[in-house]
């Protein structure tokens, strides 16, 4: 089982963003690292200049790098950015909206978790179009994951295994709305919440988190206990999505469970210690409410 570090979804300070990836290069036991802005094109100019050095450092450390594209493309400048990203031959582009597919047709690329790949017909079409690897939508149950892995063994499949679940993307910026600003004059207030802004029910129950135009779960996805089952299905890699907790320790726990040095239960306990009070979710895997967590039954 390989490990992929997903792109940072939040608006982190450029220096913190850069130093995070330097630490990834030096210390994190992952095979693949995604770099790029997926959520809001307005954030990109702040760290665009340090992307080349980050990519270079990651590659020098032996990581495969993917350049992640924007998940919702509406503006002309966003289209141009996608077109220019798609000119890259190395590293590969990770496509998060079908917009990029017209530019990448026939050339190798990756498909990110924001493209709707629910069935073998779509997966086969994407494979013919040049997709080598696909991170599946987090909503998919294990029955679908299994059917996809069986139908298209040539495309490497990845599952969303750690971090807040990306549940929705909108034209509206909820951070700006909460701060009584408009999106065009947002003052980049999403930067105040480097792990997302928690949204609770009126009863104070934890529920969701907002990150600019994106809505996520407040829980962290955690499939560490499901690694043996996913590996048995032929899943090629687990995606870990950066949060503000110690991601090197998170990746180490996943690595240890995947390699059999820790039992799945020990892996979950290790993650509980790293993540503190944040509850975990893996309900989508079982076709249940995504918020649920089902512990591994003792063998």
């Amino acid at each position: 089982m390989k490990l992929t570090l997903g792109p940072v979804l939040y608006n982190w300070e450029p220096s913190i963003w850069r130093d995070f990836y330097y630490r990834v290069a030096d210390e994190m036991p992952v095979d693949t690292v995604c770099v790029g802005e997926v959520v809001c094109s307005k954030r990109l100019p702040f760290f665009q200049d340090v992307v080349p050095e980050v990519v270079e450092r990651l590659m020098r450390a032996g990581k495969e790098v993917l350049l992640s594209s924007l998940a919702l493309v509406t503006l002309e400048r966003e289209r141009k950015q996608i077109a220019s990203l798609a000119k890259e031959a190395d590293p590969l582009v990770e496509v998060n909206d079908v917009t990029a597919l017209v530019y990448l047709a026939g050339r190798p690329h990756a498909i990110g978790p924001y493209v709707n790949v629910y069935n073998e017909g779509t997966l086969a079409w994407l494979g013919r179009n040049g997709a080598r690897q696909v991170c599946l939508p987090p909503e998919l149950p294990v029955s679908s994951i299994s059917a996809l892995a069986t139908a298209c063994p040539d495309v490497a499949l990845e599952v969303w295994a750690f971090g807040r679940l990306p549940l929705a993307i909108s034209a509206r910026c909820y951070h700006a709305r909460l701060h009584k600003l408009t999106k065009d004059n947002c003052q980049f207030v999403c930067g105040k919440d480097p792990d997302g802004l928690p949204v609770d029910t009126l009863d104070g129950q934890r529920f969701l988190a907002v990150n600019g135009v994106q809505t996520l779960s407040t829980t962290y996805a955690n499939l560490i206990e499901n690694i043996p089952d996913l590996a048995a299905l032929g899943i090629a890699s687990c995606r870990l999505s950066p949060q503000t907790c110690d991601m090197v320790a998170v990746a180490a726990a996943f690595r240890d469970v995947a390699d059999g040095r820790l039992s799945p239960e020990e892996g979950r306990r290790a993650l509980s210690e790293i993540c503190g009070e944040i509850p975990f979710s893996n309900g989508f895997l079982f076709g249940k409410a995504g918020v649920d967590y089902r512990a591994r039954s003792p063998e």
């Binding site: 998940a71 919702l72 924001y114 709707n116 939508p137 987090p138 909503e139 679940l165 549940l167 929705a168 993307i169 909108s170 034209a171 969701l208 809505t215 779960s217 309900g283 989508f284 076709g287 249940k288 409410a289 995504g290 918020v291």
Partner: peptide
């Protein structure tokens, strides 16, 4: 939310 790209409902209900 952008249509077809929202799993809020299944997060709460399946």
């Amino acid at each position: 939310m952008a249509e077809g790209r929202c799993s809020l409902s299944s997060f709460a209900t399946g």
